[in-house]
Amino acid sequence: MQARKRIMQTALAIAIGGVLIAPAQIWSMDAEDAPESVTIDSLVNLYTGVEFDHAMHVDYASCQECHHHTTGGEVVNPNCARCHSTSGEADEVTCTGCHATDRFNETYIRTLEAPELYHIDKPGLKGAYHLNCISCHETTSGPTGCQDCHTMTDAGEKMFYTGKYSPAKGHSAPGH
């Protein structure tokens, strides 16, 4: 259990902590081209960062399942396939390459107004990996609870009123 948790602590896709993948010059990428692990720490003020064991996840899922059409394999999602069935490997394969870290800032939102833009609904980085990880973990009984993957920081405990900031017992909310 403990070991599994360790592994899981490194779960979750997407690197903010920067991981450079040199674009391989072949038509399709191989697992070997991928990084061993990825540090995920966008929530670092509330939760400690996560070491994502990319090498391990390669055994569980095909590239496309997480990387959509960017790794150059067969495009399975029919929505992607409409345009990308033959577009091959993309220049940018990392999550951060497409999924904005600051998804809701004004400038980004303004870019969505372009009338011919198809990708009007790309989740931000945090959304992208949580959506991806959790939905898969639900079907493969991977970890799904928040703290199964990352431990809460002191600031997190404070905001959640949990741990040493738990409300005193017997205390109840006022009002009718």
Binding site: C146, Q147, M159, Y161, S166, P167
Partner: peptide, 17 residues
């Protein structure tokens, strides 16, 4: 939890987790 913090609302009866 985020709303409670942002709006400086009183401590909840139970933790947010």
């Amino acid at each position: 939890a985020a709303c409670n913090k942002e709006q400086e609302l009183p401590e909840p009866a139970k933790p947010f987790d």
